[in-house]
Design a protein around this nucleic acid. Structure first.
Lengths: 131, 131
DNA sequence: CAGAATCCCATCCGATACTG
DNA sequence: CAGTATCGGATGGGATTCTG
């Protein structure tokens, strides 16, 4: 009962190139709001509440989560200005800015190829309604 | 949610540029295995079971889900060759291949910037153990 | 081989309330 | 303003089993 094709002659066994780094990157960037968040930070430092209004639908709690994740990854830098009330700014690190080409490429692709279908529009509209 | 600042005077109201297309793109590509899956398809058509072995850890069910999603999005084309047993191949469409620059850019970034930390290695190892 | 169906627990995340 | 704490419903996805 020939379990699986014999590893396919053409495939070198080393081919399991899951590429851990790329995988890790997708793990991070793939999470729900992260792409939009980084996009919002591309133009410069932003404060917490600016981010909540820039990225519509993103809640405090999740924003907080995402920012911490990105901080841990060294993609975002958090700076506290000890005024009263405190002012906190988030900005991309060098590593974060280095993502620009990738984000841009994704943008170009989206512009060219992604069509918002009527259903998708309806879905979106419905989601907006829910507020 | 702590009443937002007065929309911040410096921000034009049109600034809510969530960019629906980009958002939609991230929605799709961001899902758990999708990035790796597309990556695996970049080199040419693949059969179902080839994909399960190429992308390690990806289960039948999820692969099935992802392929259908990508098919609906017009990123992947499914072809059935009515032999016995049937042979099914998946390949990227033009739209799918158009993602190459973005994926490549992401790859470059990952190579340059992503370092697998000891913790991450430990985590990965642990995850592999669990099988 | 190429999946569909079912089960079911872990994680995610939205809403709400509270703090410095 | 800039968050944290907590809860509960929704979703994700792994394991297993079954089918053509």
């Amino acid at each position: 009962m020939a379990t699986k094709p014999p590893a396919s002659p053409t495939l070198p066994s080393s081919l399991i190139e899951t590429c851990p780094r790329y995988e890790h990157a997708m793990q991070i960037l793939g999470k729900r709001w992260t792409g939009l968040l980084i996009n919002a930070l591309m133009k410069g430092p932003r404060r917490f509440c600016e981010l909540t209004s820039l990225v519509e639908g993103l809640s405090d709690r999740v924003l907080s989560d995402r920012l911490r994740e990105l901080e841990v990854e060294g993609i975002v830098q958090r700076t506290v200005y000890p005024q009263i009330p405190v002012r906190v700014e988030y900005e991309l690190t060098t590593k974060g800015h280095a993502l620009k080409p990738a984000i841009d490429a994704l943008h170009v692709w989206a512009e060219q190829w992604v069509t918002i279908t009527p259903q998708a529009k309806a879905t979106q509209a419905a989601q907006l309604q829910e507020h």
